[in-house]
Amino acid sequence: MKKTLLLTTVAAATLVSGVAFAGTMADVQARGKLNCGVTGGQAGFSAPDASGAWHGMDVDYCRAIAAAVLKDPNAVNFIPTTGQTRFTALASGEIDILSRTTTWTFSRDVDLKFSFAGVNYYDGQAFMVPKSLGITSAKNLDGATVCIQTGTTTELNLAEYFRKNNMKYEPVPVENNADVQQKYLAGACDVYTSDGSDLASTRSSFKTPQDHIILPEVISKEPLGPLVRQGDDQWVDVARWTLNALISAEELGITAENVDELSDGSDNPDINRLLGREDKLGEMLGLDGEWARRAIAAEGNYGEMFARNLGDKTPIALARGLNALWTDGGLMYGLPLR
């Protein structure tokens, strides 16, 4: 049933994505706003606060693009999507970019005709259970009821994991984080499975987060990143190189605080290229030379964004891990600025 539903969603998005969408940047500039698809509420990635202001890693990335393209980081319409609606929203043109903890997979790239800008968070699927159950390993979940968000890669990963380990489970479908919290905390399921970052985000919103544990097993690779429609190479380049600019800025020591000073010139040619002093990278993108400076000034470099939204001083308290810079043992590094 779940697999059929997922395939139906994929097929619908594929039909809509057959339409060519060239000139997205021109449309965004004419509109004066970037339409950014996000989650309805996932702390640390994209969620509105009590006043309606949006915060999170994926939110910050869209603000960086708005700063680069529109010269205003606040020129963004944040449009909530679910696992079921996100691809149709992107394929139909309702949103210009999907920045919503979405796993880069073969079928989404090739069959759905989307282009990923890169990876902004390396993750993996895990399991969360109430500590009171006394479970310490996913291998002890035989017969469990499992809450799982529909329209996601986690559905198939879960089925494969239980099949490979000769275990049975009863799925409890949920639509979004609010639905998860209601059902999981009410005891409608024994386990919640999702990306590890999503579990940490969800747990941080509980009244007693210490009463819930994330089991040690990580059962999949989930490279999460923003994506746009295929068929518009300029917009793909803008999305990809804005993300790269934020990662490169951390490598180069460029922060929201010092970016304006460094824009006046540096002894480092990579800094000069990124900030518009050499090689006219902005012109190649169809933007001005200040595009990257504005993107970095908006919410800081990748490391600043991570620390503010997900780091050890936040309620989510995620370690950098694989998302550390390559010089610190992680997988993040900026592509060559040549």
Rank of each mutant, 00 (worst) to 15 (best):
K3D: 13
A13W: 01
F21Q: 14
A22S: 10
G23P: 08
V28M: 12
V38T: 15
S46Y: 07
S46I: 01
A47R: 13
P48T: 08
S51W: 01
G56W: 00
G56Q: 03
V59C: 05
I79P: 06
T81R: 09
T82I: 07
T88D: 07
E94G: 15
D96I: 11
L98Y: 07
S99H: 14
F106Y: 14
D111Q: 06
F114R: 02
A117C: 07
V119Q: 03
M128D: 14
K131A: 06
S132D: 01
S132Q: 03
L133H: 15
G134Y: 02
S137N: 09
N140G: 05
C147M: 07
T154S: 00
T154M: 00
K164H: 07
Y169E: 03
P171W: 11
P173G: 11
D179T: 14
Q181N: 06
Q181R: 06
K183E: 03
C189R: 04
D198C: 14
T202K: 00
I213R: 00
P216T: 15
S220F: 04
K221L: 11
E222V: 02
P226H: 13
V228W: 06
R229P: 09
Q230P: 15
D233P: 07
Q234E: 14
R240E: 09
N244L: 10
I247T: 12
T255P: 12
S263E: 06
S263M: 06
D264N: 05
L275V: 04
G276T: 13
L281E: 04
W291C: 06
W291D: 12
A295Q: 08
I296C: 09
G300S: 04
G300Y: 02
R308M: 08
R308Q: 09
L318V: 00
L325I: 04
T327Y: 14
D328L: 13
L331V: 14
Y333T: 08
Y333C: 08
P336L: 05
R338P: 10
